[in-house]
Amino acid sequence: MKVTVKSWTGVATWRWVANDDNCGICRMPFDSCCPDCKLPGDDCPLVWGACSHCFHIHCIVKWLHSQPQQQCPMCRQDWKFNNK
């Protein structure tokens, strides 16, 4: 007997490779989206700061807009986007 696989359709779930499960600002899981968004993933991506903390991009932008100083809400260091 010989078995030939012609096509294999697997099922996988995607997740962000991040050092935490939840966004520190909105407390939603990273794999979900921020409260303002409806679709996760490409439409609501994560960003990493130089301090290595990461957030939903919409959350951190909102945060930075509301603050006089551009600081990471977790560690109070100056916020810089880490474009790795």
Partner: peptide, 28 residues
């Protein structure tokens, strides 16, 4: 496939559910 996906979408990876899906096979 996972590697390729990681390359396509930065900072994201896949965890497979091996028991799900379907397979088209030919048995001789």
């Amino acid at each position: 496939y996972t590697k390729s996906f990681e390359a396509l979408k930065g900072n994201r990876t896949l965890s497979w559910k091996p028991h799900l899906g379907n397979v088209n096979i030919e048995i001789e």
